[in-house]
Structures are given as C-alpha cells and as structure tokens.
C-alpha cells in the first residue's frame, strides 16, 4: 500500500493508494480520480514531520566527484519542515547564484519510537520509503557546520513524495535504480546499492545518539551526476518501485511574490 496527503476538491485528505492505483481516503471513501490528474494537489507525504536527517557524501561515486575521501563515519545534517514541499510543486532558485543542484534521495520514514536500536532490529522502526530532492546552493557553502543551513535549510528546497510506500512492499531497498531527469533528459543514474552507510546502519547510528520518533525521516544521500538548475526547468527524481517526484524551478521573485 502507498500513503499520501493531498488536497482534492478543496479538502485536505490522507489517502491510501492500492496496487491498482485506486485511491481511498483513510475514512474509507473512494475517490474517483486518476493519480496523474491535475485536480490533485500533492502535499509532503509525512503528516507530522519531525526531525529530518540528511546524509552528505553517502554514495562512493558522489564523494569522489566532490573531491572528498569517502567518509569513515556518516556525515549527517538536520533539516526542518520549512524546507518541505510536495510533488508537482515549485522550488526556487535564489537570485545571483552560480550553482544550484538537485539531489535525488531515498528517504526512510521512521514509524516507531526507539533508542539504541540494533542494526538487526532497525527495519522494525522503518514505516516506509519515499523520494526527496535535497537541493543545494553550492555558492553558500562555508566551512562551518558544512553543509551549513544557508545551503540546506531554505524554504521549498526539499520536495518530497508523492507518496510513502510501505516497507514490506519493497523487496530489496538496497538495489533500486535511482534516476534524475532535467527537462526530459537523464542527468543522474545510480543505484541504492552504492550507498556507503545503509538504512539499518543509519538507524543504529542515529539511535545511539538520540531517540528516533515517528515522523522523523532519514534522507540517505545521492549518487553522482549534478547539474545546475535554472528557473523554468522541470526536474524529476525517480527511485524504482518507490515513486517519481516532479518539481518545477521558479525564480526567487516568483516564489516569494509579495514578500520578495
């Protein structure tokens, strides 16, 4: 089963989507609408988002591309809900920058509270998976708590969804093709098997430091293939058997409107 949050006919709804793409609200009402309908507004799929953990340099090839040694320990940074937006929504490119890139990532959504979780029990704490696009503004990198909040905590720069796939519906999460297309052309093509620190490792590692709670998320990093994004570009991040996440880039002025 898949789970999402949408706005449809003016109502905010929690929905389940079955294998035949049939949509049912959690109240049991069936919605007569197709998944690709423009009448659906997709919200970020985690209803009460908690702490978002994101991984840097967690694919061997991406670590090489960025001229770093692969890390011996996970590089983890934290994001909050201000960064989240849904499928088919917009993200903005700040004015006067040189390089903004996408990062297609597998996200593990925590479903159960836990601390000091052993690696072999870790998957019991994962409710399911989704896809995010953890955009970065490389111009803003500074060598203090790198990647710093100015790079990674901006409004709208973490599209996620469209849905969460139940954990048990994914046969082998460590062997999924991961691709990104910009304006219809594939620019990133990797596999979750190249992850340096896998989900059980990360759940064990993080839960040795702190309590994990339902609604927390772990964005597991991205493989190589970074290109610059410009307003007007459409970027689609896809992970096999999970979902495809589409985002349109707009200017800072278009995004903030009256507040620009």
């Amino acid at each position: 089963m898949r789970h999402a949050r949408i706005i449809f006919e003016g109502r905010e709804l929690d929905i389940d989507i079955d294998a035949s793409d049939r949509i049912t609200t959690t109240d049991g009402q069936e919605l007569n609408v197709a998944l690709d309908s423009a009448d659906i507004t997709w919200l970020p799929p985690v209803k009460e988002p908690g702490t978002i953990f994101a991984l840097g340099l967690n694919y061997a090839d991406h670590a090489t591309e960025l001229a770093f040694e692969p890390p011996k320990e996970p590089l983890v940074f934290i994001k909050h809900a201000n960064t989240l937006t849904g499928h088919k929504q917009v993200s903005y490119r700040p004015d006067n920058i040189e390089f903004q890139h996408y990062e297609c990532e597998l996200v593990a959504v925590i479903g159960k509270r836990g601390k000091n979780i052993k690696r072999e029990d870790a998957m019991d704490y994962v409710a399911g998976y989704t896809v995010c696009n953890d955009f970065a503004i490389r111009d803003y990198l500074e060598n203090y708590y790198r990647p710093n909040l100015r790079v990674k905590s901006r409004d709208s720069l973490l599209p996620m969804g469209p849905w969460i796939v139940d954990r048990d519906d994914v046969a082998d999460v460590n062997n999924l093709r991961l691709t990104t297309e910009v304006n219809g052309k594939i620019t990133q093509d990797g596999s979750t098997r190249d992850m340096i620190f896998d989900i059980p490792f990360l759940v064990e590692y993080l839960s040795k430091i702190m309590t994990l709670n339902p609604g927390d998320m772990i964005a597991t990093g991205t493989p190589h293939g970074m290109v610059d994004m410009q307003p007007g570009d459409t970027v689609v991040c896809t992970i096999e058997d999970i979902c495809s996440l589409e985002t349109r880039i707009v200017s800072e002025k278009e995004y903030y409107g009256d507040k620009y």
């Binding site: 908690g50 500074e142 100015r150 905590s153």
Partner: peptide, 14 residues
C-alpha cells in the same frame, strides 16, 4: 577563512 555568515545549528525535538 573566518565565517562570513551566522554559524547556525539546530537542537532537534528530542
């Protein structure tokens, strides 16, 4: 080089 911007971190909900 020294920081040019405020150096920020989060204390998460836990």
């Amino acid at each position: 080089k020294p920081p040019t911007q405020p150096v920020l971190y989060y204390k998460p909900r836990n």
